[in-house]
Design a protein around this nucleic acid. Sequence first.
DNA 1: TAAAAACCGTACTCTATAGTACGAAGATAT
DNA 2: ATATCTTCGTACTATAGAGTACGGTTTTTA
Lengths: 215, 215
Amino acid sequence: MKTPATPAPSRREANRQSRREAILDVAAESFLEHGYAGTTMSAIAATLGGSKGTLWSYFESKDVLFGAVIERVTEAFRAQLSLILNPADGIEAALRRFCAEFLRKVTSAEAIALHRLVVGEANRFPEVGEIFYARAPQRTQRLLADFLETAMERGELRRDDALVAARQLTALVMYGGHQQMLMGLIDTLTPEAIQAEVDRAMATFLRAYAAEASS
Amino acid sequence: MKTPATPAPSRREANRQSRREAILDVAAESFLEHGYAGTTMSAIAATLGGSKGTLWSYFESKDVLFGAVIERVTEAFRAQLSLILNPADGIEAALRRFCAEFLRKVTSAEAIALHRLVVGEANRFPEVGEIFYARAPQRTQRLLADFLETAMERGELRRDDALVAARQLTALVMYGGHQQMLMGLIDTLTPEAIQAEVDRAMATFLRAYAAEASS
DNA sequence: TAAAAACCGTACTCTATAGTACGAAGATAT
DNA sequence: ATATCTTCGTACTATAGAGTACGGTTTTTA
C-alpha cells in the first residue's frame, strides 16, 4: 500500500509542522506571561534552542507570530470549554454544574492571562478581540442559549429571549471573582468561592426566569 | 503682615503645581490612547513644548509618571461618577436612571481606554488594579448597595444581601455592550442600545428582587 | 538689581530589541 | 551519493527610547 493520495506527509512537512508547534508553544507561554511588549523574539529563539534565522523562516514578524499565538491559544481555550449541559440531570442541577465548570475554567491562570492580553492589545490588534470574542464568549452563550431555549419550550423556564438569558447568566457568574482576578486583586478562586459565586448567580437567575406559576 | 504660615503659595509653588498638571494632562492622553509601551517620554516632552530635563525634574521615571497618571485619571473618573439615586422618583425609575447614566459613563471612550489600560497592565503594575478597583467598581457598588438596602428595609424589594444585589445589577448592565467595547468589537453604544441594555437588565433584576407577594 | 532657582535646547550615553547576512553543518529526497 | 533544503551559530545593522549632562536663558525671590 502506498501513501494515501490526499495528505502527502513527507518527512520535511512533518518536521516543519512540529517545529511550528514548538515555536507556538514557547511563544504562547511568553506572550501570556509577559504580554506583547514584554516578549522578545530573541528570548523565544533562545528558549527554543534554535537560531533567530530559523524563527523568522516560520513567522515573518513578531506581529504575525502574535496573531498565530492568539488564534491558537483561543482555539485551545474553546476546545477546553466543551462544557457539560446534560438535561437528564434536571435543569437546575445541569445549570449549576455548567456554571461551576465554566467559572473554574474562566478563572484559570491561563484564561486570565489570555483575557488580559486580548483586552490590553485590543487597540493595536483589533482582529485579536474579534477572534477571541467569536470563539469564547459567543460560543458559550450560544451553547447555553440552546439549552435554555429547550427548557423554555418545555415550560421549565419562563419563555423569553434565550440568548439574552444566557448572557445574563454568564454575567452573573463572572462579575465577582473573575473581575477581581482580571484586575489583579486576587490571583485564585478557591473552590468554596466558586461554589458561593455560582449559588448566588443561580439563585438570582432562577428567580428571574422561573416558569410562570399560573397556567 | 508676612506671608501666611500654613499655605505659602509662592509664585514658584504655583507654577510648579500647574506645570505638573499640564504634564499629567498630556501624559494621560498618551497613556490612554497608546498604552504604556506605546507612550514615549520624548513624545510627552515634545508635546509639552518643554525639555526632557524638565520632565524628569517632575517625575523621576516613566513608571512613576504612569502611576501618577492612573491615580489622577481614576480619580477624575470617580468624581465624574457622582450618580443620581433619588428615592423620591420611586425605586424603579431611580434605578433605571442610575443604570442608564452608569452605562453611559462606563462606555465612554475615556473609560474604556482606562479600563483596558488597567487590565492590560495588571501584571506589571499590580497597584494600578487596586487603585482602580477601589475607586470605581467598589464605590459604585457601595453607593448602589446603600440605596438597595434602604429599599429593602422599606419592603420595596425582597430582603437579601444588598451588596450582592448591587453587584449583580451592575453585572447585568455591563456584560453586553461594555464587554464588546472592551474587546474592540464595537466602538460606541448608541443611546438606543443603552436603553435596550438597561431595560433587559432591569427586567431581570426586578423579577429576581421583587418584594415577596404574600405577607 | 543681584543671587537663586527653574527651564530650555541639544547633544549625548546606554541598552534593548527587531530583523538581516552568511558560511558551515546537518537532514532529506531522489 | 549527491543535489537540495533546512537549521545553526554568530556576528551584524538599524532603530528606538529611557535617562543624563550641560551651558545658556528666563523667571522668581529678596
